[in-house]
């Protein structure tokens, strides 16, 4: 088995420890940035939903401000965001490189996207349910947790899946500023040194990762659809 692998993937097998380290870095970036982005995106998505005109806590200034900020960050290409946020990253994390250094730009890159996804997931909640909950004496906070979130598990899962997958794409780009990870690994060896086997294996690993996330997301969403 080992001989076959060495024959087919000569470059990769010589750099296995480095490959595992890169894969681990990708997982670290995905999990850390993903977790922070999930929490922030949920909060922003909920705020957008309840403060928008006709929402249960309608508030024009809050909605307009948040809406504009999200649009602003959504329109900045991620590669520019990566470099532009370096000072902020140094301030918050103490460094602008390695995994620690790219968590901030990853969060800034993915949160606005996820917030919009959450907003549109919650917008699918039937207005009649909100009205029924209000008629039963639910407070706005109860409605957020017991109606909006509870009734939107399936669309929220789908939104999370999409964001997790696009975040994986961003982590590959983050390699460009010295974050490490699989993207960086593939570029440094696969592209710069023309080691085709490394490119292929990286691609296959990423495809597998995406498939697993998608499969899991679909399963959870289906289980919560009645």
């Amino acid at each position: 088995m080992h001989e076959v692998l060495v024959e087919w993937l000569p470059n990769l097998m010589k750099r296995l420890p480095e490959f595992w380290k890169a894969a681990g870095d990708t997982v670290l970036m995905e999990v850390w940035a993903g977790a922070i982005c999930f929490v922030l995106g949920m909060i922003f998505g909920i705020i957008l939903t309840v403060t928008k005109p006709g929402g249960i806590m309608e508030n024009r200034p809050v909605y307009q401000t948040l809406d504009k900020i999200i649009n602003l960050f959504r329109s900045i290409p991620f590669i520019i965001l990566l470099t532009a946020l370096m000072p902020l990253s140094r301030f918050i994390m103490g460094t602008a490189i390695y995994v620690r250094g790219v968590i901030v730009p990853l969060v800034f890159g993915a949160t606005p996207f996820f917030s919009r996804q959450v907003e549109s997931a919650l917008a699918q909640t039937d207005k009649g349910l909100i009205e029924a909950a209000l008629s039963m004496g639910s407070s706005p906070f109860e409605i957020i947790f017991r109606v909006y979130l509870r009734e939107s598990v399936a669309p929220l899962t789908r939104a999370t899946t999409i964001t997790a997958i696009s975040l994986l794409g961003l982590t590959a780009m983050a390699g460009a500023v010295g974050a490490g990870g699989l993207g960086d690994f593939a570029i440094r060896y696969g592209h710069d040194r023309n080691m085709i086997d490394i490119t292929w294996v990286t691609v296959i690993v990423l495809v597998l990762a995406v498939s697993i996330v998608q499969w899991l997301g679909d399963k959870i969403a289906r289980k919560n659809t009645h």
């Binding site: 009205e131 008629s135 039963m136 004496g137 509870r150």
Partner: peptide
């Protein structure tokens, strides 16, 4: 807050039933 409590004593039903599907 008092309004939320007062509403509990007024039931309401709707044309589209508005049951929570999940």
């Amino acid at each position: 807050k008092d309004l939320y409590n007062a509403r509990k004593k007024i039931g309401m039903i709707f044309q589209q039933f508005n049951l929570m599907p999940s």
